[in-house]
Every structure is written in C-alpha cells, then in structure tokens.
C-alpha cells in the first residue's frame, strides 16, 4: 500500500521552481539560503538530520528523475570515502566564502557588478537577461548571481551523478549533508 503523502513530499516542486526562476529574475537566488540555513539550524537545535530525508526538495527531485533516468549503478568507493566527502565540503565552503568576498568587493565599490553565472567554478555564462530591474544595491545582485552559480553547479553535479550512478548519489557528498552529520557527531559525541 502506498504511503500517505504529506505536504513536504512535494518540496521537489519548490526546488524545480527555484532553478527555473533563476532564469527570469536572479534575485530569487537569495531564497536558496534557506537550503543552507534550515538544515544547519535543524541539526543544531535537535532536529538532527531530519531535513535530508524529509524536507530536501533536491533529494526528492533526484529520486523522481532517477526512476526514469538513473542507470542505478553502484557508486565508485572514493565518492563515499571520508577524504572526498570532507574535502568536497571544504572546497564548497571555500568557494562560498570566495563568493561572499566577491560580493563584499562590489559592496565596497572595488569591483563592478558582473552579471554572469559561473558553472563548475570555471565557465562564466552571460546571465544579464535575468538581471532584476528592481532598485536594489549592486552587491545584492552580485550575491544572487554568485549564489545561483553555486546552486546551479551543485544541481548539475547532482543530475550527472544521478544518471551515472544511484538516483541520490548527490546525498553521499552533499556538503550540507556532510556538515549536518558533523554537527550531529559533535553534538552527540560520536
């Protein structure tokens, strides 16, 4: 018998909308911060890893798409190794702070606004078509471009590994998943 669906079983729609909206108005990218803050706050306040298998829209989306497109092959062992998971978390955080610093440089007037989305931290795509006409400071837009780059890149990585291996391979090396597991390990002394 199929399990009764809850409201949070439809959060994959929110994740899909998030990616789509970034093509129309880059300021929506700010909403992605919720995907960083909610799991972190949950793990710090006793919610443990509840976000991952209940509220993660990206995970749900990968499960759904995986039913049709995944080769469902075992992942290479190195992806689930600690050095790769922690290394990817460290790399991801470095890139996040790098992006925040770029935002600061625009805020300080040192750099001008760059209306580009950078995929895989390397390939800059012109994204001026999604630049908002709202009267907001340039640094607000710069953060949105940078954050959307991060979200689009991680979605792309999730999709590629979903096709090549198991549907939710992304969950194995998801930086938020690794970080919240570390929080739980520290909190519950394991």
């Amino acid at each position: 018998m199929a399990k009764k669906k809850n409201w949070y079983d439809y959060l994959w729609i929110v994740s899909t909308l998030y990616i789509i909206l970034g093509f129309f108005n880059i300021l929506f990218a700010w909403l992605g911060l919720l995907c960083f803050l909610i799991p972190l706050v949950m793990s710090l306040t006793g919610g443990k890893k509840g976000y991952c298998n209940r509220y993660c829209g990206r995970g749900q989306l990968l499960t759904l798409l995986g039913k049709k497109f995944s080769k469902n092959l075992p992942i290479p062992k190195w992806i689930s190794s600690k050095w790769f998971r922690y290394g990817f978390l460290a790399f991801f955080l470095t890139m996040f702070f790098n992006m925040t610093f770029s935002t600061y440089l625009v805020f300080a007037g040192t750099n001008s606004l760059k209306e580009v989305v950078t995929l895989l931290w390397s390939f800059s795509l012109p994204w001026h078509f999604a630049s908002s006409s709202a009267p907001v400071a340039h640094w607000v837009k710069q953060f949105a471009f940078g954050f959307y780059s991060l979200m689009l890149t991680s979605t792309l990585l999730g999709l590629v590994t979903m096709v090549l291996f198991r549907p939710r391979t992304w969950c194995v090396y998801c930086p938020m998943g690794t970080m919240t597991q570390l929080v739980c390990k520290a909190k519950y002394k394991e």
């Binding site: 890893k49 995970g59 689930s80 194995v172 998943g177 597991q181």
Partner: peptide, 11 residues
C-alpha cells in the same frame, strides 16, 4: 562508519 545518514533507507 561508512553511513552518510541521508535517510534514504529510513524512507
């Protein structure tokens, strides 16, 4: 030790 605690199995 190898579990990533994603919760896929729980679901």
């Amino acid at each position: 030790n190898a579990c990533v605690s994603c919760g896929c199995c729980e679901t």
